[in-house]
């Protein structure tokens, strides 16, 4: 489904030191440094896999997700999702993927959620029959029937996240990218979201790529973990591979970060 080979990406970032004098100096001269966000990344993800993509902040997680979703063009390397190169065939590619950013909403704030759904139907040109079928299925499983008529601003975070997930699945994507899907949710909502993702994966064979800092998400969902640090893949294996004893998942990951010095 997803093939990534030797992906590289470098950014130029302005260096800025704190302080009053430095600010004056920066007025006339600015220094840049190169950040190797991705330094040769390769992996391959099969159809219907659920993968946890983890790593500390600034490790290159979001660059990878941006490349996979067609937002960012890499400097070099190959990447195909369902046989397409995301940044070359953007429009055809994005029809096949769904993206949920945990901290950003794609719902219209002031109108009932169903209006946002209707709009997405037009944006993705979803045939009426498919839309109806998907909507009723999602409404049932995510228990949305009572909230779709409510404006998004009046929903709780958990309710909203359920709607966000539904919104990104209306067009039947083959791949689902989840960026911190459970951030800020209460325990009940977290469980509901996790259950749903698992179910979606089982019933539709949707490939799921999950980035999160919440290790319980990983434990519940991901059969496979890819750990990235300093732009490189440090580890690619199953959860059981990395866990030696029966210790807590957070400790395992902390241990890993320490081991790889990231």
């Amino acid at each position: 489904m997803i093939e990534v080979k030797d992906l590289k990406k470098t950014f130029k970032v302005a260096r800025r030191e704190a302080g009053f004098g430095e600010a004056v100096k920066a007025l006339f001269h600015r220094e840049y440094e190169l950040i190797h966000a991705l330094d040769g990344i390769s992996f391959s993800i099969g159809d219907g896999e659920m993968v946890g993509y983890i790593g500390p902040n600034g490790a290159g997680k979001s660059s990878t997700i941006k490349i996979l979703s067609g937002i960012l063009t890499p400097d070099s390397g190959l990447c195909t999702v369902g046989g397409r190169t995301p940044w070359k065939e953007r429009r055809a590619h994005v029809k096949e993927i769904g993206v949920v950013f945990g901290q950003r909403s794609q719902l219209w704030w002031d109108v009932p959620v169903i209006d946002s759904f209707e709009l997405l139907k037009e944006i993705y040109t979803i045939p009426a029959g498919t839309y109806k079928k998907n909507l009723s299925e999602l409404t049932e499983i995510l228990d949305l029937s009572k909230i779709v008529k409510t404006p998004a601003r009046q929903l709780s975070l958990g309710q909203r996240m359920r709607c966000e997930i539904a919104a990104s699945l209306l067009h039947d994507p083959k791949v689902l990218f989840l960026d911190e899907p459970t951030i800020g949710l209460d325990a009940v909502s977290k469980l509901a979201v996790r259950d749903f993702i698992k179910r979606r994966n089982k019933d539709h064979g949707t490939t799921v790529i999950l980035t999160t800092h919440d290790m319980q998400d990983i434990e519940a969902l991901a059969s496979r973990i890819i750990l990235i640090g300093k732009g490189r893949i440090l580890l690619d294996g199953t959860l059981d591979d990395i866990r030696r004893g029966g210790e807590h998942i957070d400790e395992t990951v902390a241990e890993l970060y320490k081991k790889f010095d990231v």
């Binding site: 994005v94 950013f101 950003r104």
Partner: peptide
């Protein structure tokens, strides 16, 4: 700045 344009790029329009 707030990523709305990323969202736009994720849509087939």
């Amino acid at each position: 700045a707030n990523g709305e344009f990323d969202r736009i790029l994720c849509r087939p329009r």
